[in-house]
Design a protein around this nucleic acid. Sequence first.
DNA 1: TTCATCACG
DNA 2: ACGTACGTGATGAAT
Length: 549
Amino acid sequence: MSAIAFLATDPDGYALIDLRDHGSAQRLRPLVHVSREDFATTVASIEAEFEPRWAMLRTSGWMPPLLSAGVYLAKAHVLSLAQRIMHRSPLAGKQIPDFDLEHSETTTEHFNQDALFDAPTFGDSLEDLIQLYTQQRQALPQDPVARKRLELLIHAESVGALIACEMEHAGLSWDEAGHRALLREQLGERVSEYARPPKLALKAQELALALKTPGLNPDSPQELLKALHKAGFAVRSVRAWELEQIKHPLIEQILEYKKLSRLASAHGDVWLDQWVKNSRFHPHYVLGTVVSGRWAASGGGALQLPHAIRQVVRTGPGRTFVVADGRQLEPRILAAISNDQQLQQAGAQDDLYQWLLDAKLVSTRQEAKLGMLSVIYGGGGGASGAVGAALTKSFPTAMRFVEQAATAGQQGEGVRSFLGRGCPPADEQWMRAQRDTADEASQRAADAAARARGRFTRNFVVQSTAAEWALVWMGHARHLIHQAGWSEVCRQVFFVHDEIVFECPNELADQLQRLIAHAALLAGRTLFGAASPHFPVSVAISSNYADAK
DNA sequence: TTCATCACG
DNA sequence: ACGTACGTGATGAAT
């Protein structure tokens, strides 16, 4: 017997909990009205007795008080996230309206059919929740395989939402004093927000002098480009990767300035003030907005933490990070979704790129990596290049799969992930541009747009499935940690697409490492069945994030 | 508001 | 002969 608990706003109080049997929809308990004070304990007791799937519109609002009280929820159905998935999924049995995730965060009115938004915004009332849930159940496909996949996707997305809340609550252990010391060393004394720190200002002055351009602002690409031209450097832009081609002391100086300037603006004192509290970094993870199902983060650029700053991501004494990432995840995902036996064979060993090297398909690891990326991204060095040709010959099934995805996209069709996350359809403007090609120029533009969309859909099938593998991996890891009784001391504290960071007591690290690898194995089986290809993970144990590579 | 640049997977 | 990859967020300058 499985139960579902609707968690709604009580118009006369705080929360309303409606606990029902999942199959029969019979109430297992009379409707529970619960006050703010009793909320956490009531939820905890229902969790302990029934372990229901908690159906809520959004996690925000409900999860923070539960987490503050140390309450763990095993399962969830986040209606807003499920609604978007089902709206876009080609597997859905019927079309259902979108949910405006981008704007709904602050909206609480019922059925606010504001002309601004296409999608109705739902309130948090029990009626709204049940209506949404029913609508979603009815739109699930009849076909049992498709149905199972879409349900799995919604459950995985929902547990991901719980994990995101848990990570936001826990925060990432940050050596604030160490970070400040690093800033003092590299930038000099702290100055007001808009002034240049002393060491940076000095470098700017030196550059102005060297380039014979008084008052030069090296942060202005225009000014810097002009000054470089004047000094005789024929560069097209001032991008670091372009300047790096030139070996010249002056260029080195510029690159050094850029690095320091970046540190000051992106991870300087202001950033620390804003995002690190009590030596923990608390970013906000955003689910459901990236089309491929990857997560985004707002606040502090959590998903773009520079490697250079990771040295100050440190645990306290007695504790350590356990950092795990899916090895060569995207090629393995491609092997799975295309059912390419040769590529799965290549991935049977932990290092897929080494296999390509041993098979003499490529001559360096870098070539192996770039070749694979090229195939998945649809790059010019892909099927047309030498490496691409070798890969096409060795893995024809996988190559056909991505080619088909690209062709579909070029024709304006949609594609989907393995579990059924659909990509948004080509918009009306795109379709019009394809039809109305009056002259050569518009034809060229239309062709370029078609190719761009082809690259997007080619990548989508892989990236979106990789994202759901990662969700399922995290979900299994969380479940296993809970089962082991470690939830209190062992926490997931960071996540970036195919990498998870846990923080735990030193003595648990080895066991946790094995648990994470097992979770990866389970994730493969959950998605692709008993014959799932191999999904190895690399795990590093370190009290310092920078060393865990 | 848009552009250029840089950070990440 | 071409298109020189996919997906994001944040910042400061330019408009």
